[in-house]
Design a protein around this nucleic acid. Sequence first.
RNA 1: GGCGCUAUCGUCUAGGGGUUAGGACGGAAGAUUCUCAAUCUUCAAACCCGGGUUCGAUUCCCGGUAGCGCUACCA
Length: 499
Amino acid sequence: MPDPSIALKKEDLSSSAPRVRFAPSPTGFLHVGSARTFIFNWLYARSKAGTMVLRLDDTDVKRNTEASVQSIFEGLKWVNLGWDEEYKQSDRLDLHQKAAWAIFERGLAYRDFTPAHTGDAEKSGAQGTWLFNPGMRELSREESDRRAAAGEPFALRFLVPRQSVDEIRFTDAVYGEQRKLASDVEDFALLRSDGMPTYHLASCADDADLRITHIIRGQDHLSNTFKHVLIFNALAAQLPSFAHLPLLVAPDGTKLSKRRHGPIVSVTSYRDAGFLAAAFINFLCLLGWSPKNDREQMSLAELQELFTLEGINRANAVVNFKEPAPTPEEMFDPKAVWLNAEHIRALPVEELGARLLPIVRGAGHNLTEAQMLRITPLIRERIKLLRDVLTAADFFFLDQLPQYDPAELIPQKGDAAMAGKVLEKARSVLAGVEFKHDPLDQALRTAAQELGLKAGQMFQPIRVAACGRKNAPPLFETLEVLGREKTLQRIDSAIAKLQ
RNA sequence: GGCGCUAUCGUCUAGGGGUUAGGACGGAAGAUUCUCAAUCUUCAAACCCGGGUUCGAUUCCCGGUAGCGCUACCA
């Protein structure tokens, strides 16, 4: 008899609120492609008032690690979208077994006593058409039972229909009508010889049991779906809807992998480099999906509103990273970096400051919230990654300016003498003026006039003296935040450098 | 090898039988500002190839090519 707990799941899945799932297998860190799958599922669930299920697909005991589970949670925690229900397949082995044997009892599976293939070395290249191990499909039930009872190990395989007319079909929300001859599908395993369920079986049994209505996953599962249709049918479960996502690939067109492409494929690399989760999500959504209205920069709320399965396209998307990159910024897809800068600028000063402060403190600088808040508006438009605060605003929190070339102090069309004159003048002016934007502006422009110099020629030496480099935020705001004491001190040491 | 999927600027994409094939990133040039950044303007840059169908295909059909995926007692 079929197990009733499986069979009774046959109900109308389409009329209820959608239930979607993200089902990573813990064999490594959270991959950006997985993160995108998670995000698309989440967006779909949220836009339809549905339920988001997180399920750890950990049936491959040999390859699963606890460290990987942790790193997946770490990645998801940063992405910060959350989920409604959580399961682990290893807690549900009983269900899988029952499902497998229910299929067997229905005559849709058979025991395969052929020893497992040892060498998986020749996985690529010309492989003969493998559909089933000879002799095993035809084994009588009696003999099969007898050999099993005798303790002979076996795998349980799905008995795929072999009539050439049998066709498996389903509709994919992205790829449309899909059909395949059953005779082109191999007799895939349901249970391993150690009794553990395979991915296909566990996944489908769980999807049926958890009443998943929409399976949104990577396109690498598109051809597996034919097997899944077979399993759902054998389980007498209603078929969920499918939506396969085009894959994320590397610039060389190959699938993203840690071995080949390094840490760039890990979600935490984006976090550590100073991406905002919202920008990261935004970026990923633009790979393989489009709102079709030329919108690019979108908040999470906007994405939720705009997201539809119809907007997903079919071709693989390249994540345009550079692996050996001179700077962290250059290693990421330029569009991701640009989006991050956009999201940074869109953040209120208080919020941006709050995100920047831990980074600055983490680098060993003492800084108060109030100080951070004054610095933030000055660098807001000058940083692309959060970590850029360390280089863009260093002169605010460093006591000693790093070494710089005294030649930098020399203004346009000027010489060292002019630089010296400017700095001396600035010194005396700044000693008396109020350190606020407007008075500074007025005093320094007047000083420039008195020296017969252009404003730029006056400001540049002061800027370099104060900041240690030519490129910095506007001068008066900077000096105002820096304060009289540090400014004068730095001008003094710049004058000394000039000698 | 078998089966499946895909193909628009360097990249992400919009579009669709008749368009100057649109946008964005990146690139180049310029404007602007005390430098940088931001902002603005301008420029370069694409329909894989070959056959059909059609008055007309980048768009529809077929074939080719290329890429990707699956082809495990991995997921």
